[in-house]
Amino acid sequence: MNTLTHQFLDVNGITLSLYSAGPDSGRPVWLLHGFPECWHSWRQQIMPLAQAGYRVLIPQMRGYGQSSAPCDPAAYDLITICGDIQAAMDRLGQADACVVGHDWGAPVAWHLALLEPQRVRAVVGMAVPFGGRPKQPALEIMHQLYAGRFHYILHFQTPGVAEREMDADIPRTLRMMMHNTSAAVPKDFFLQEKPAGAGLFDGMQDPMALPHWCDEQAFAEYLKTFSGRGFYGALNWYRNFERNWLRTAPLADRQIEQPAQFLLGDKDPVGTLEAYTLKQMSRLVPRLESHLLVDCGHWIQNEQAEQVNRHLLDFLARHFPA
């Protein structure tokens, strides 16, 4: 990790904090983190990719860490966030790239592939599949399905509500979310049955320890991401489902035509939540390669780093050689 460089880019109306590694002349591979994570969640992928000859670029996404965190929730729709990465590619003079995303980073990666069919030559999504543009905003569907019941995305909608609970004890919040979506935990906050109006962590206990895949040094980087700022920027990503739906209208019915890889943990609750999308994905992504990783929860690139690196490097060697 001592070969990492760091810079700030003024792009798309914000300041983007960007880490990078690998040869300047290497083909660019972007690693886009999810929620509630940080650039350091890719710590086990950065050097293997750099050593394979790639220029590895790891931004702190809008709302996270040292990157700008606009107050207006409307500043966090998918098209705007894609614009951050597109503008950064422009600033760095990149004519082609592979984009890799995990969790919320995956929808950004999928949409960059749609928006940039010439520049994005290959795309990898982890944990969150590509389902195309739904017939109505996803939030409307959730209100219908979870009327009177708790759902974490519905819980996140009103600014200030989730922040009060999550910001009150940031180490506890991170421990709870890391543990309760890992492979070792059979029931998690995604799937809990509790009434609407419940708190995110109601009925759950703080494990007080870190999961095996996150040591104290790594955890310190996660804490640094949210300390002093809290989670409001990260939560604003969840407050744009209707805006995302409106702004992606020109992309409706478009296929992702580039070579694509999807990685999912066999114990990731997202696999249950997105079961229908998974069945539809091959129709929307005709050049798709999918892999189910054994004994793996949601934090896929850390829980099973060797499996992820093997699949990722093999895919890149065939479709985006260094």
Rank of each mutant, 00 (worst) to 15 (best):
G228R: 07
A220L: 08
L200M: 15
A196H: 10
L223D: 03
E216V: 01
G197F: 08
P186G: 02
F226W: 08
S227A: 15
L210G: 00
A196C: 06
T225I: 02
F226R: 03
E216T: 11
M204W: 08
A220N: 08
G197W: 10
F231L: 12
G228L: 05
L191P: 00
P186A: 11
F189V: 11
C214S: 02
D202S: 14
R229I: 00
G203H: 04
P186M: 01
C214T: 02
D202R: 07
M204V: 04
P207W: 03
R229M: 05
D215Y: 01
L210E: 01
F231Q: 10
A198G: 12
F190Q: 11
L210K: 02
A196W: 11
M204R: 11
F219T: 01
F189N: 05
F219Q: 08
A220Y: 02
A220M: 03
M208L: 15
P186Y: 00
K187I: 09
K187Q: 14
P186H: 06
M208T: 09
A198I: 06
Y222L: 05
A184D: 15
A209I: 02
F226Q: 04
R229K: 15
P195S: 13
A183M: 05
K224S: 13
P211G: 06
R229P: 01
F219P: 00
K194M: 09
P207I: 02
D215G: 02
Q217S: 14
F190V: 01
D206V: 10
K187V: 12
P207K: 01
L210F: 00
F190M: 12
F219Y: 06
A183R: 14
E216Q: 15
L200S: 10
H212P: 00
E221T: 11
A209R: 01
L210V: 02
K224Y: 12
F219D: 01
P207D: 06
A196Q: 14
G197N: 09
M204G: 06
A209H: 02
G199E: 10
E216Y: 04
L223F: 05
F201L: 11
S182Y: 06
Y222C: 03
P207F: 02
G197D: 04
T181E: 12
D215T: 04
A218I: 08
D206R: 05
Q205R: 13
L191Y: 01
H212I: 03
T181I: 15
K194Y: 09
T181F: 01
K224T: 13
F219M: 09
A218H: 05
G197E: 06
S182L: 06
A209C: 07
V185Y: 08
Q217L: 13
G199C: 10
D215I: 00
